[in-house]
Design a protein around this nucleic acid. Structure first.
Length: 424
RNA sequence: GGAGAGGUGGCAGAGUGGUCGAAUGCGGCGGUCUUGAAAACCGUUGAGGGUUAAACCUCCGGGGGUUCGAAUCCCUCCCUCUCCGCCA
């Protein structure tokens, strides 16, 4: 949620920024400010009534102690009128507050000035490209063929045990998963991230904190018996560590990294690009999260973005960096970089990481604050990114490094793998 | 799964109907003392809203109720801990 005070004080600026998303920002913001005024008026009147009623109650208390029952009874009569008025006002206030809350929840984050204009993925800006596409003197196979031929991943077995989108990794396929996870975690630690191993089921409060609830409810698996949700990303439990927390300024930036399996129902996205590892219900990911001082969050974003690139370079993967346009950016983000690796056999780019600065949008809901120079609590900025999501990395590694009858592993992974190639 | 205890300020922990936003201790901050530090002593120290500043309002797990008045009484939900059973 955007801070209401910011919206009040920098109305025109926010309208301009929000308009980039192609939404009726002017209307939405003015509606919100109208509701805000109503709420504030109502609150003022309610508080006046409460103050009056508190005053009378105290007076009655004094009269009782002095034994002046009759005088007390007179005052009591007056309080009953007050109570009725108060009840009405409170109801009115609650209605207005709910409307405001709803309107605020529907307002996406304001794109940063550097975000390109545009409506769809076509308008994303390619800011950097690294490496070249692998060339083959034979017919390159897509990863699902390779996975089968080299006995690395069994998709049918996953269907038997659970359902589509839950692959079973076997032998060197399983070892490759484990190697990548360890490699990513070690790299993150070297970069100064503290490793976290969080729960992968979260409660409702956490879902609200990072914004999966209420609107994206259908995207998470829900364990109804206990009202817990399987996490769609480690961002949820890790960021919620800092929900309702006031940090010391010198604790910033906080850098956390964690590996977790991720679960996504992907409701409504069947039939499109779902072959093999391209889109799964369960997958592995190492996520990096930072809590930063507002003045430094964009420097932190660049640092994180560069860090993710360094991983892709070490793995030797041909990739490109996109700055997402306003229309393609997630609801909660102010600026997002996507990293895409080239899949040589599918001949398309696959998203493997998304690095975002949410500014105070998440922090506002989380009540994640730090103390400024004057000791006053202020909202911090949150950032996160995948570093990295495994399935599409695996897809690209298998496809790009395939030879006629073997698959060569990148050198950095060999110590983790215990082998340097996958053979028939 | 069975039985019990409990949720109060950064932490510990008092408080069972009125002047309690809340004793006390620890921690934090400021000061006195000291060459410096420790100790000791003095002061100060929750969050949100509101105001130029104040007044004022809200918050003692969540929600509802009783009452002129609720941290305190009632209902309900949630959570935590302890013991027993089962179990990785």
């Amino acid at each position: 949620m955007i801070q209401i005070t910011a919206l009040r004080e920098q109305t025109e600026e926010y309208i301009a920024r929000l308009s980039k998303r192609g939404i009726p920002a002017e209307q939405m913001v003015h509606d919100i400010l109208d509701l805000d005024r109503t709420v504030r008026e109502c609150k003022q009147e309610t508080e006046n009534l409460q103050a009056e009623s508190n005053r009378l109650a105290k007076e009655i208390g004094v009269l009782f102690r002095e034994g002046k029952r009759d005088e007390a009874d007179v005052l009591k009569a007056r309080t009953s009128e007050l109570k009725d008025a108060l009840k009405d006002k409170e109801q009115e206030l609650r209605t207005a507050e709910e409307a405001l809350e709803q309107a605020m929840l529907n307002l996406p984050n304001a794109p940063h000035a550097g975000v390109p204009n545009g409506r769809s993925a076509e308008d994303n800006e390619v800011v950097y490209t690294w490496g070249t596409a692998a060339q083959f003197d034979f017919e390159a196979q897509p990863h699902w063929e390779l996975a089968k031929r080299f006995n690395l991943i069994d998709f049918e077995l996953g269907v038997k045990i659970t359902g589509a989108g839950f692959p079973v990794y076997t032998g060197k396929g399983a070892r490759l998963q484990r190697a990548l996870i360890n490699f990513f975690l070690d790299e993150a630690r070297t970069e100064g991230f503290i490793e976290i191993q969080p729960p992968i089921l979260v409660n409702e409060d956490s879902g609200y904190g990072t914004g999966q609830l209420p609107d994206k409810e259908g995207q998470m698996y829900h364990a109804t018996a206990d009202n817990l949700y399987l996490i769609p990303t480690a961002e949820v439990p890790i960021t919620n560590i800092y929900r309702d927390v006031i940090l010391d300024a010198d604790a910033l930036p906080i850098k956390n990294a964690g590996y977790t399996p991720c679960f996504r129902r992907e409701a409504g996205s069947y039939g499109k690009d779902v072959r093999g590892l391209n889109r799964l219900h369960q997958f592995d990911k190492v996520e990096i999260v930072q809590i930063a001082h507002p003045d430094l969050s964009y420097a932190v974003l660049e640092e994180m973005q560069q860090y993710v690139q360094s991983l892709l370079q070490k793995l030797g993967l041909h990739y490109r960096v996109l700055k997402l346009c306003a229309g393609d950016m997630g609801f909660t983000s102010a600026l997002t970089y996507d990293m895409e690796v080239y899949s040589a056999a599918q001949e398309r780019w696959l998203e493997v990481s998304s690095v975002s600065n949410f500014e105070s949008f998440q922090a506002n809901r989380l009540k994640l604050r730090y103390r400024d120079e004057n000791g006053k609590p202020r909202l911090a900025h949150t950032l996160n990114g995948s570093a990295l999501a495994l399935p599409r990395i695996v897809a690209a590694l298998l496809e790009n490094n395939q030879k006629a009858d073997e698959i060569v592993m990148p050198e950095v992974l060999v110590p983790y793998l215990g082998f340097d190639r996958i053979t028939l």
